Simulated assay, not measured.
Amino acid sequence: MHGPASPGWLLVALCAATGAYCLLRMRSRVEEQRRTAGGEALMGFGMAAMAVPAAVAVPPRWAWLVYTAVFGAAAVRALWTARSDPHHVHHLMGALAMVYMAVTMAASPGHHAHHGGSGIPLVTGALLLYFTAYVLRSGARLLPLGSATAGSTRAVGWGDRPELSRACRLSMGIAMLAMLVTL
């Protein structure tokens, strides 16, 4: 996950900014925004921490175990909530991908996978396929389809704008792809 420093820092900045925006979404008046924003903030900040270049800091083995526990708990929560809200299936996949990467990092020599080949190719490939499809689908959903909302006069706060939350999900999907590719 920890390749060259410059792309690594860009990934850290992207994930941290996404996590910060998701924290702001937790203050929304829209229940759906609040419900998903916490998990997405956790994912953004977790990905930012995991993407810190290895040249700067190599986390100790216990840190990867903490990641595993935190995202394992997030996966259980997402599994529980996915029963009533299918969007949480994606949260489940994201949490499971984070658990997989943390376990792989804990098991790899030197505790970082910048040399590649550290994961199980079949699992890594399946996650890459899932997140590639998710990114393509999310990107397509951002494309304007005409003036479907032109008749709406309701004022929406910037934290409640669905296109911003979709853009955040898209950026986290792209970041997940970048992290999985270097695994």
Rank of each mutant, 00 (worst) to 15 (best):
V56S: 12
A57S: 09
A57K: 00
A57R: 13
A57Q: 14
V58C: 13
V58T: 15
P59C: 03
P59N: 03
P59D: 04
P59M: 12
P60S: 10
P60C: 00
P60R: 12
P60Y: 03
P60W: 05
W62H: 04
W62P: 04
W62V: 09
W62E: 06
A63C: 13
A63V: 07
A63L: 15
W64E: 05
W64I: 01
W64M: 08
L65G: 03
V66G: 15
Y67Q: 05
Y67K: 09
T68A: 14
T68Q: 09
A69C: 13
V70N: 04
V70F: 03
V70P: 10
V70H: 09
G72M: 05
G72A: 05
G72P: 00
G72H: 00
A73H: 03
A73E: 04
A73R: 01
A74G: 00
A74I: 00
A74P: 07
A75N: 10
A75H: 12
A75K: 06
V76Y: 11
R77V: 13
R77E: 10
A78V: 04
W80T: 06
W80F: 14
W80G: 08
W80Y: 13
A82F: 12
A82G: 15
S84T: 15
D85W: 02
P86N: 03
P86W: 07
H87D: 13
H88V: 02
H88L: 07
H88G: 02
V89G: 05
V89T: 15
V89F: 08
H90Q: 14
H90N: 10
H91Q: 11
M93L: 15
M93K: 06
G94S: 14
G94V: 11
A95F: 07
A95Q: 09
A95Y: 03
A95T: 00
L96F: 10
L96H: 13
A97H: 03
A97R: 04
A97D: 05
M98P: 07
V99R: 09
Y100L: 13
Y100N: 07
V103T: 11
V103D: 13
V103G: 15
